[in-house]
Design a protein around this nucleic acid. Structure first.
Length: 238
DNA sequence: ACATTAATTATGT
DNA sequence: ACATAATTAATGT
């Protein structure tokens, strides 16, 4: 409904966008140039789906700014947030999983900017660009590992410990240091947290309220700041 | 130990 | 003023 910027909002892409990111850090300027020339840049509003689970994986993405949630829909139609992807990471990399459809849905948590390339370039990237393959498979490994940890958590730990460790993960991966502590630097509701931890928003609300009284966290609407991470660590493996 | 339901209040546009 | 987010209490499994 706003400006008529559909396909190419950003005319010139600077090489410095990629040069410091792990998958591309080993590449020469000329290589980065050709990579950028094949990329499409696009801006997304908050809450917009970038790609859908099960859809044909036509493109892969690099998140330049913002955060996206990787979301799966259960049989009963409820959303379960699997993990958050911070800027600088690749996503929608179905080929790295040996799939040709996206394994999950990606929704922007805040407004975001991402580059994307047609998936047919994937094999060329892996073959031609030193470090691209190792780095991407590293992040894939990390994500799979994280999801597995979460599954184990769901089965073994109690709710209080789950949301405690979920908060710790969030501040670790997407935290920003503020004077009073570490703030999650995108808007997150109790509903979101409950989806991350397989609980209800009510339980999350109670936990946050009680933690706030204990001085462990501070929260306002859609914002959570952890003031005492160590206390959460204790809670998370109690 | 936690979910569900429901009523109430706060907050952002 | 309206919709969405958050709190709180009561009741259920």
């Amino acid at each position: 409904m706003d400006r008529a910027v559909a396909e190419k909002p950003f005319p010139r892409l600077d090489e410095s966008l990629l040069s410091h990111l792990p998958p591309f850090s080993k590449l020469a300027k000329s290589q980065i140039r050709t990579i950028l020339d094949q990329a499409t840049s696009r801006r997304y509003d908050a809450g917009v789906t970038v790609f859908d689970e099960g859809a044909e994986a036509s493109r892969f993405y690099l998140l330049l700014d913002g955060y996206v949630r990787v979301v799966r829909i259960t049989a009963t139609g409820e959303q379960v947030t699997a993990l958050h992807i911070p800027s600088g990471q690749l996503m929608g990399i179905a080929k790295a999983l040996g799939k040709d459809t996206y394994p999950a849905t990606a929704i922007t948590a805040i407004e975001a900017i991402a580059l994307s390339w047609p998936m047919r370039l994937w094999d060329g990237f892996v073959a031609d660009y030193d470090g691209f393959a190792t780095e991407t498979y590293k992040t894939v490994g990390n994500r799979v590992g994280e999801m597995n940890n979460r599954i184990v958590e769901m089965a073994t730990q109690q709710v209080e410990q789950r949301v405690a460790s979920a908060l710790l993960r969030l501040i670790h991966q997407t935290g920003r240091k503020i004077d009073s502590g570490i703030e999650i630097d995108f808007p997150i509701t109790r509903q979101d947290l409950s989806e991350l931890t397989a609980t209800t928003l009510h339980t999350v609300s109670r936990l946050l309220s009680s933690w706030e009284k204990q001085g462990i966290v501070q929260s306002r609407r859609k914002r959570i700041t952890v003031t005492d991470p160590h206390a959460l660590v204790i809670l998370s493996n109690a």
